[in-house]
Design a protein around this nucleic acid. Sequence first.
DNA 1: TACCTCCACGTTTTT
DNA 2: CGTGGAGGTA
Length: 732
Amino acid sequence: MNPSLLDDLNPEQREAVTLPDVSALILAGAGSGKTRVLTTRIAWLVQSGRVSPRGLLAVTFTNKAAREMLTRLSAMLPIDTRGLWIGTFHGLCNRLLRAHHREAALPQSFQILDTQDQLAVVKRVMKSLGIDDEKYPPRQAQWFINSAKDGGLRPSAVDPADEFERRMLAVYEAYDAQCQREGVVDFAELLLRCFELLSRNEILREHYRMRFRHILVDEFQDTNKLQYAWLRLLAGSANCAFAVGDDDQSVYRFRGAEPGNMRDFERDFGASHVIKLEQNYRSHGNILDAANALIARNQARLGKNLWTAEGRGERLRVFEAPSDIAEAAYIVDEIRALRADGIASHEIALLYRSNAQSRVLEHALFNAGLAYRVYGGLRFFERQEIKHALAYLRLVANPEDDGALLRVINFPTRGIGARSLEQLQEAARIRGTSLWLSACSDPPSGKAGASIGAFVHLIEGLRNSVQGMSLAETVEAVVDASGLKDHYQTERDGAERNENLGELVNAAAGFNAEQLYDPAAPDGGVVDLSDPMAALNAFLAHAALEAGDYQAGAGEDALQLMTVHSAKGLEFHSVFISGLEEGLFPHENSLNADDGLEEERRLMYVALTRARRRLYLTFAQSRMLHGQVRYNIASRFLHEVPPELLERVNTPPPRAFGSMPFGASQTARPAAPSMSQSASGWRVGQNVIHPKFGAGVIVNAEGRGADARVQVNFRNAGLKWLALEYARLTAA
DNA sequence: TACCTCCACGTTTTT
DNA sequence: CGTGGAGGTA
């Protein structure tokens, strides 16, 4: 065995990497070398001959993480990484379902619906059921369906609690039936269908259990119920599961993650070892101490304390701005100074709790002429023009895909209006067929029928001509023949869209079989891209499963703007955490949810631990939000960091009774009160007395007239929103 | 069918 | 404030 593999590991890392054939849980703190342990573990297992590469299954949540693992692995091991079963939950399930599509009752070329596509199907189904979408919002139906699937529940297993849920359930049922008819699956369905396939089909289950002796899972704290069950099913009782995660970085409960899975893992997987990785290689001591002190306030923890061999470093810099604009101006100044000190832009991150906060920052950066990149916008494969082109391609692969047909049958416009579409849908409904078949066999008569006939002819023509083409040629043919290119040529902002269509052709040309599998070969050969249909299907799946990663400007040296959520897993030399205000971070909406505050605190923990060397914590006394000026007080998280680790970099404005730091008790505000506030006789910053809650100070106000509410920070009772009409407030 | 205006809404997000 | 969706009008 190559000993150098283990050379630079610390004792705990080494222990984790070299565990024998057992199940184990690795509690890996932020910056403790989690990915390294995972990949080195794989390399060690292979190199020591404990398992062959084909006997491994490694699961991640994002394509980026999967790619990273493959890249590092190919540097460590002289093996062909093609055909390795390393990927996202969805990617691996897709792979299994393609290989066993018959057993899973799916067409070979089943298509994958992204979130938008799914919502469109939900809307369509609700319409056909005649359900009032005012009373039953399609988005909620979508959420209902996905939550059920993430919990492993088919419609028959859902027990509706009330009339609302009964209607939602009816939508779920009809939705599933519709997807089945069209041969399409949504993201959650990929997992659920795969889970059901393996639980019902003993032969397949045993086959894969025999094969995957070692199962490795990244970001285990983010797994949901279904993913957990899927892992248990594959692991059986004989295989080894190696789960790496950090309960303190669990920030996705809102989308179904069950951090309790970490607690249950030991029992359910018979884990014989729990190893904690607590040495942090990323941050200086003050930053880590701040993060540790903060997260220690959470009750529900498995328990872990990060330490570093590095020095204390700088203290955390706290800046209190009078307004969001002043906050942004300060950040710009500091960025200039950092750049002058030789820190590259891409090593500087601006983090915020919610996307809306990026606007003010962007404005300031733009005016300062600083290059920046905002993460989390519209992704390449989600753009309108790309979705249109993909819809044509989907029809080429499978014309019975109603969603794809509806998207483009009249785009670009070809005289197929709402009424002829309705006729078509009605005919299809009566005969129980797809729209395509209905359009082929009995198109509406007259002019509309001719238009539909022309569309059918167009798709048929494409389906034929594609047979002899490469993937890139196919995409190009579709972009041309569909009329998309011509359409965008005439549209005023169409130039960029046409550029993107060109990019799509490039993406197809650069699409290679490296990480692909052959649907026909259960054990995962490489896709034969010379088979046009196989190549097209692989490309479409790729587009659905990997919507991002074609971001413009990637790789340029630019400042990194993103939400704290998107920053998870990344690190930077310098980090600004902005908008550290009550109501924003922690977000007010989270305070009602159970465990809400603890999740916000974990989020703050993630934010703090992104920084290697320098950390700025900034907040603003006033901020424009939803078109109204809001007056916020400093985030409680600032008080949860020991004061000796902090350094105030500006002198805060004078305070009326300000013994506490960061304006925990309130003062008159510099900003002028709005008309309604002064007209109502109250103003922000005013000291008041409430008969029940006692003395406090108005910190925020919204609404007017009968709706007027004020937020009061009571000395003893804390923050409260009070309706002015009812609350018996008196001036102090 | 295309454009325009009005209204409602406004954490976090990957696949 | 800003956007996106819906509904109405030319």
